[in-house]
Lab assay of single mutants.
Amino acid sequence: NDEAKKEAEKLWKNNKSEDEIKERLERAGISPDEAEQWLQELR
């Protein structure tokens, strides 16, 4: 999970869309709710 979150953070810094980041997190096995929460922390 931490690995996926690091990846999400990297994508965020590269200005990827939130949808793309969420999709990537969900593919890594993170629930949509958790993915949404993680994005809010990044904002």
Rank of each mutant, 00 (worst) to 15 (best):
N15R: 04
I21S: 00
A8T: 04
L42V: 02
E3S: 09
E18Y: 12
G29P: 03
R27I: 14
K5A: 02
A28H: 12
Q37W: 04
R43D: 03
N1Q: 13
S17E: 05
R24W: 15
W38R: 00
Q37H: 07
N1M: 14
A35P: 00
I30D: 02
W38M: 09
K10M: 14
G29T: 01
I21M: 01
N1P: 14
L39V: 05
I21E: 01
N1C: 14
A8W: 04
L42W: 12
P32G: 09
Q37C: 12
E9R: 11
K16P: 05
R43A: 05
Q40A: 13
E3G: 09
R24Q: 14
E26T: 10
E41C: 07
A4M: 14
K13Y: 12
E41G: 07
N15L: 06
W12A: 03
K16Y: 15
K13A: 11
A28M: 15
E36H: 05
K22T: 01
K10L: 13
L39W: 02
E41D: 09
N1V: 14
D33P: 03
D33Q: 13
E34A: 08
D33A: 12
E26Q: 11
K10A: 10
Q37Y: 06
L42K: 05
E36A: 10
L25F: 02
E34S: 03
A8R: 02
E36D: 09
Q37A: 13
S31N: 08
E36F: 05
E3N: 09
D2I: 13
L42Y: 04
E20V: 05
R24Y: 15
D2H: 13
K5M: 06
W12M: 03
K16A: 15
E23K: 09
K10P: 03
E26V: 13
E23I: 07
K10G: 06
A35G: 01
A28S: 06
G29I: 00
R27Q: 15
R24T: 13
D2V: 12
D19F: 11
A35F: 06
K16R: 12
R27H: 13
D19I: 09
N15V: 03
K16T: 13
E9L: 14
G29W: 00
I21Q: 02
L11P: 02
L39A: 01
K22P: 00
E3L: 10
W12R: 00
R43P: 02
D19H: 08
K13N: 11
A35R: 02
K10E: 14
R24V: 15
L39Y: 03
N1E: 11
W12P: 02
A8N: 02
I30V: 12
K6N: 07
E26Y: 14
Q40K: 10
Q37R: 14
D33C: 11
K22F: 07
E23R: 09
K6R: 10
E9S: 09
K5D: 02
K13W: 13
I21K: 01
K22I: 09
E34N: 03
W12V: 03
N15P: 02
K6V: 07
E41W: 13
R43Y: 05
E36N: 08
W38I: 15
A4K: 06
D33T: 07
R27F: 13
E3A: 13
N15D: 06
W12H: 04
L11H: 04
E20L: 07
E3R: 07
I30M: 13
A4D: 02
D33N: 08
S31C: 12
E20K: 03
A28D: 10
E36I: 06
N1W: 15
E36V: 06
I30K: 01
D19N: 08
I21W: 05
Q40L: 10
A4Y: 07
D2C: 15
E20S: 03
